[in-house]
Design a binder for these strands. Structure first.
Length: 270
DNA sequence: AAGTAGACTTGTCCCC
DNA sequence: CGTTGACAAGTCTACT
């Protein structure tokens, strides 16, 4: 599930249901879901704590408790959801938070890549993550300066969470196509015109994707199995062998940064 | 500094 | 066809 719009969709869905609730019992179905902290310490730190707010930073879902913060990363197949319905298939449930009012917050993750982190201080996480693409500091000028001082392949840079926090494989391909930039183009050689187009593309596409509740390729769901609606608005991702919506050239799938990458060979020259 | 490969893990597809 | 094996929405580490 995983990129910024999907995480934002989950946060918006969970926030009103979680704020003010208390975590009564933490049940680690698959204990490795807890990262970098002993299970007993984790349990002691969260049980009895009230959830004060639910926010997002990059692709992390943040649960702000009374005295600690939980950061949930869904990685590729994770889903975090509340349900009162009895869950009988625990095959892929990695953790359950029993919360007040008889509710349960489930973490289900088929591939078990997703993790829950415990932070006393959010600055530790903040230092590992780059700028928020929908934040006020992310301006065309910021992007221009930061592309110039690096010499990275554009797709690698957009996927680098320490540079820009929130884009993944789907939206990286979409924004590069919209801005007509080849994924292997070196960042310090991108023109100011295309930098401006890229900045616009990132803002527009992420905003539109959030408005559509994200993109569901396979596993992404939120709030009682609802799926994202941005699939219908994808222009190049998984569109190989079909026509570019802009110039009708056949979309190709190439390899970039070790990832399947979709481009229009005509719109996106290297 | 920046690139690649491997690791983690399990389901899908039969393409690559 | 799928008893194989590559690939998948992500990210970390080791190595060059």
């Amino acid at each position: 599930m995983p990129e910024l719009p999907e995480v934002e969709t989950v946060v918006r869905s969970l926030r009103p249901q979680l704020i003010g609730r208390t975590i009564l019992v933490f049940e680690p179905i698959w204990p490795k879901v807890i990262e970098a902290v002993l299970l007993d310490d984790f349990t002691a730190a969260v049980e009895g704590q009230k959830i004060k707010d639910v926010t997002r930073r990059g692709k992390f879902i943040l649960l702000h408790l009374d005295s600690v913060h939980l950061a949930v990363h869904l990685r590729m197949t994770g889903t975090l959801f509340i349900t009162r319905k009895p869950v009988t298939d625990f095959q892929h449930i990695t953790a359950v938070f029993h919360i007040s009012a008889g509710e349960k917050l489930f973490f289900r993750d088929t591939r078990k890549f997703g993790r829950i982190y415990l932070y006393r201080d959010l600055e530790v996480l903040d230092r590992k993550l780059g700028i928020e693409p929908l934040g006020v500091g992310f301006t065309t000028e910021w992007l221009w300066e930061n592309l110039r001082i690096r010499k990275r392949q554009m797709k690698a840079l957009l996927l680098d969470q320490t540079f820009l926090a929130g884009l993944g494989n789907i939206y990286a391909d979409e924004v590069l196509w919209r801005a007509k930039i080849h994924p292997l183009k070196l960042s310090n050689t991108v023109s100011s015109t295309k930098t401006k187009a890229l900045h616009e593309a990132i803002g527009t596409i992420l905003t539109d994707a959030i408005a559509a509740n994200g993109t569901t390729i396979r596993d992404f769901t939120f709030q009682d199995e609802q799926t994202g609606g941005f699939n219908n608005e994808l222009q190049v991702f998984q569109k190989e062998d079909s026509a570019c919506p802009r110039c009708s050239t056949t979309i190709r799938k190439i390899r970039a940064v070790g990832r399947g990458t979709h481009i229009c060979p005509r719109c996106q020259r290297q």
